[in-house]
């Protein structure tokens, strides 16, 4: 098992390398001389320019610049933001935490809701409950995540039950750690709900189909022939087999979750990577864009790795190969 994980990690190394190359090329192969543009930009001080020129070899050919950049990345130097005049790594670190919190929250909520609902619908196959749930799932799948977020913001603004935007309330300083945590969660709830609603439909559909498939499997007949009570047949034998393929698709889902999170963050004003990269794009803060893109890809790879490890733990057929 350990060897399998090591092998997976090693497989990701060339992928990471390719990602840096692509991130770099996207920014640098664009039409227009980037370096002159930087110098013309009144927002950027000559000192910054000089420092960047030194660190990133901006006066050198593009390929050499790339190696400068990679060297800097390896030492966690992601350049300095032109707009904020602070290191990009510092900016990203702060935002990354919020994005990860939002993503983890919504992944957990999505799974915790979609799996029981999927099982329920599978057991009610052909009844009106299944029809209603599946219709709702269809609506959920088709609603754009930003629209869900906007609707929730609208509702929250009308009812004033949930705070909109930011991570903390104004009384932050005097509060105890627990109060701070609860306050953070309260702020997380709105973007978290939006992201959960956006993702739950497809996961529900998958779970329902998997569970139905598992229920039709021969080993279920074996379990019933042994005289096992329905609880064990459903929740031991069928469930375990229905959840395994869900872990595999977790990697694919994650890409959507990260994209959705970024968009929902912007709509609900949750200070995460989404807002950061949008502002960077708007202010042509290109090194920050590059760094954010790379971090986004890195998160996805990390998520895939976690999914791989989970799958290995859940499925003996892979573990013992």
């Amino acid at each position: 098992m350990r060897r399998y994980i090591v092998r997976r990690v090693l497989q990701f190394v060339p992928l990471l390398f390719g990602m840096t190359l692509l991130s770099f090329l996207i920014i640098h192969l664009a039409p227009g001389d980037y370096f002159t543009q930087l110098k013309m930009n009144p927002q950027i001080s000559p000192e910054t320019i000089a420092a960047m020129e030194r660190n990133f070899g901006l006066d050198k050919p593009v390929l050499v610049q790339y190696f400068y950049w990679v060297k800097n990345i390896l030492t966690f130097n992601l350049g300095e933001s032109f707009a904020y005049h602070v290191p990009n790594a510092f900016l990203i670190k702060e935002r990354l935490l919020n994005t990860v919190a939002l993503s983890v929250f919504s992944i957990m909520a999505t799974w915790m809701l979609a799996i029981p609902l999927g099982i329920y619908a599978a057991r009610k196959k052909g009844c009106w409950q299944e029809t209603v749930l599946s219709a709702a799932a269809y609506v959920g799948i088709s609603l754009p995540s930003f629209f869900i977020a906007m609707l929730l913001v609208f509702l929250a603004a009308r009812t004033m039950v949930l705070p909109i935007g930011g991570t903390t309330s104004i009384f932050w300083t005097g509060a105890s750690l627990w109060e701070k945590f609860v306050d953070y969660l309260r702020h997380l709830l709105l973007p978290g709900m939006a992201l959960t609603l956006a993702g739950i439909g497809s996961l529900y559909r998958l779970m329902k189909n998997n569970f139905l498939e598992a229920l039709g499997s021969p080993y279920i007949l074996t379990a019933r022939a042994k005289g096992l009570p329905p609880v064990l047949v459903l929740y031991k034998h069928a469930l375990r087999n229905a959840v395994n393929p869900m872990i595999t698709i977790f990697g694919y889902e994650l890409s959507g979750i990260l994209s959705g999170a970024a968009l929902v963050e912007i709509i609900t004003n949750w200070p995460g990577m989404g807002r950061l990269i949008l502002d960077a794009v708007l202010s042509q803060d290109l090194y920050l864009v590059m760094a954010s893109l790379l971090i986004g890809g890195f998160l996805l790879i990390l998520g895939n790795l976690i999914a791989d490890i989970l799958l290995v733990m859940a499925d003996p057929r892979i573990r013992l190969r």
């Binding site: 499997s217 021969p218 080993y219 007949l221 074996t222 379990a223 022939a225 042994k226 395994n244 003996p316």
Partner: peptide, 26 residues
């Protein structure tokens, strides 16, 4: 009541053992 009969008084063996065993349990 049938759950009590199955397994206890009647045992069943099926055609294709690989499909009739649950792959994720020992």
């Amino acid at each position: 009541e049938m759950e009590n009969i199955r397994g206890r008084q009647v045992g069943l063996v099926f055609q294709e053992p690989s499909a009739y065993l649950n792959p994720v349990f020992t």
